[in-house]
Design a binder for these strands. Structure first.
Length: 227
DNA sequence: ATCCCGAGGG
DNA sequence: CCCTCTGGAT
């Protein structure tokens, strides 16, 4: 049985369709509470209609909302995209900045979105701690790492910088396909042998994870690295 | 009926 | 800190 995520998911990658940093940041904003598949269905028309930051800044709200409606939260997302376009035009010459500290100042862009953009549009290694990553960490008993920033720091110390982006994809992919929030598919889990909560039923899974002392953090290496 | 790859606002 | 925002999948 596969035990490491790099063996289990050798081809993990960003599943959003994009060609430029602007397209990616827009796609990531739309991906909140929505499947990548759905996002990829609306983005072709969206990108065609709004090719530049200026286009988002000057968008007709109703039209923009209509284009992104299937992704949910469409009013919030439309506001975010319009504000995003305006901020890019005003402060970054209409270009998406390639620095974390700049990205997080943009409307609709938080830590998660910023890291996805850095890692996938700019090849800047980034650890993307989303709810999946956080959940996995919790289930593995690293209760001292509840804060996403702490996770990023701890993982950053253990994993070579070069692998941060791929690590994020693998963990996120694993969280989506196997280690779900609700009914984890432990039977299909490549990490089951090392999992503190393995053996508990779906209902008690998270309770079991709380009670068991987690493995050493170095086991994180078993989750990912080719290193 | 309930949950989900987030971020902003009160 | 808790609340809200939405459609779609299950």
């Amino acid at each position: 049985m596969k035990r490491r995520l790099d063996e289990a998911y050798p081809d993990a990658h960003c599943e959003l369709d994009f060609r430029t940093p602007l397209e990616l940041i827009v796609a990531v904003v739309l991906s909140a509470q929505c499947t990548d598949k759905r996002v990829n269905e609306v983005t072709p028309a969206l990108f065609s209609r709004y090719p530049t930051a200026t286009d988002y800044a000057g968008a007709q709200r109703a039209e923009l909302e209509e284009l992104i409606r299937p992704t949910g939260f469409y009013r919030n997302k439309a506001s975010a995209l319009m504000g995003l376009g305006a901020a890019l035009v005003e402060r970054f010459d209409g270009e998406v900045p390639a620095k974390l500290n700049d990205l997080v100042t943009l409307p609709g862009v938080g830590r998660k979105t910023a890291n996805v953009v850095l890692g996938n549009a700019f090849d800047v290694p980034g650890i993307t701690v989303d709810t999946h990553f956080g959940r996995l960490v919790r289930r593995w008993g690293w209760t001292d790492l509840e804060d996403p920033v702490k996770v990023e720091q701890a993982v950053g110390e253990l994993i070579p910088r070069k692998e941060w982006t791929m690590l994020s994809h693998r963990v996120i992919f694993h969280g989506r396909r196997v280690c779900h929030a609700r009914k984890p598919a432990c039977g299909a889990c490549p990490l089951a042998r090392d999992c503190p909560a393995f053996g508990a039923g779906p209902t008690e899974f998270d309770e079991a994870a709380k009670l068991v002392k987690g493995p050493e953090r170095e086991h994180l290496l078993a989750l990912v690295a080719d290193a």
